[in-house]
Design a protein around this nucleic acid. Sequence first.
DNA 1: AATCCGTTGTAACATTTGTTACCGTCTATC
DNA 2: GATAGACGGTAACAAATGTTACAACGGATT
Lengths: 210, 210
Amino acid sequence: MINDLRTNFSHLFEDSLIEEINKVGSLRHVSEGEKLIEIGDYMRSMPLLVSGAIKILREDGEGDELLLYFLEAGDTCAMTLTCCLGQKKSEIRAIAELDTTLIMIPVQKMEEWMGKFRSWRNFVLSSYHTRLMEMLDTIDSIAFLNMDERLVKYLRDKQKIGGEPIINSTHQEIAYELHTSRVVVSRLLKKLETMGKIELNRNSIRIIAL
Amino acid sequence: MINDLRTNFSHLFEDSLIEEINKVGSLRHVSEGEKLIEIGDYMRSMPLLVSGAIKILREDGEGDELLLYFLEAGDTCAMTLTCCLGQKKSEIRAIAELDTTLIMIPVQKMEEWMGKFRSWRNFVLSSYHTRLMEMLDTIDSIAFLNMDERLVKYLRDKQKIGGEPIINSTHQEIAYELHTSRVVVSRLLKKLETMGKIELNRNSIRIIAL
DNA sequence: AATCCGTTGTAACATTTGTTACCGTCTATC
DNA sequence: GATAGACGGTAACAAATGTTACAACGGATT
């Protein structure tokens, strides 16, 4: 674990903090598709993302979803931060987008470190900032873009996260994450294919030029 | 100022912090409609809201707006927090919704207090948490509600902020904040009036039962 | 090969939201 | 009281999105 820490967090944290994390943190692996947090869960520890990616989802009244954003290596879950401190329930669902490695940190420690390590404070604050910006971006997409533009944005994000020009999702899955219907997604994807921007296959989409 | 502080923040901050704030903070009054922050502005100080209310707005590519949320007494602007620290430009616009009194705190101090006062850290963290929840709520509204429901929610919020059952806005102003058109707002308001839930007058709306 | 089930394509239609246009009313100002 | 401009009501239409229904296809299983 100490190596993972050095690789991903040494530019953020001083050595003494890295060592503390190494002492009290525990390593955890989750496979693609595995659920990390469910809505209503209480959280007892805070995740530091070492590798992989996690998608954060919101649910409406009917049980349908909406993708909020992705967490990547070096990120932490800002939602979890104060949920931990305030003993609040989670408002979101977290699912591994890829195979992912995390370091879990007990709540008490992160409180203690806030007073002790300046780099930790900065990390926490900048996590919040990043997350707020991410949320603003999500709001922009939903409020200002049409579904075709949102779909393109979604495909770009997926491609970036996955690192490959192939997205292994069904139209139904995409529809869930964009909070629309499968028919709408199929329709718009077809249009993108006709324009030569993507290639459609069963269970996968190849990005050509978006 | 010390009285304002005692009234609104003594349950949050210890006496020594209240005194510090009193020493370095400066009081500021803004009138209804006055702009506090413009998109792209750099921020040199952090506001603590003593009384009144501030609306936070986001802008799309065409210069049209969207209301994100309101700040009320006891709140601070979470966006400003890290904008200050990170020397980033503001992503939002802030306009006084009512006549408002603020205490402005220089950036350096808030950094210093993070290490020194536990109550300040908790305040900052819980501000972030509140704001993230507020943003989630905004996302819910935009993503999951139809315009008629969003309008009702908007009217309720306005009523709550203003403290009176009368909202002094034109249909055009409401349309801006909901990022839709005046005609749509007029249409939906008329429907609400027909249902007996509101009463429409020139430049004002009386809430009867929402 | 026959069957089943999840996936995709597509048409037809409904609903919601946005746009344009026009008119009447109110208010401030001259 | 004449005029101009902001405000609000409404119709007619356009565009975007959602819904229902059905057919074709692919892959897995029997």
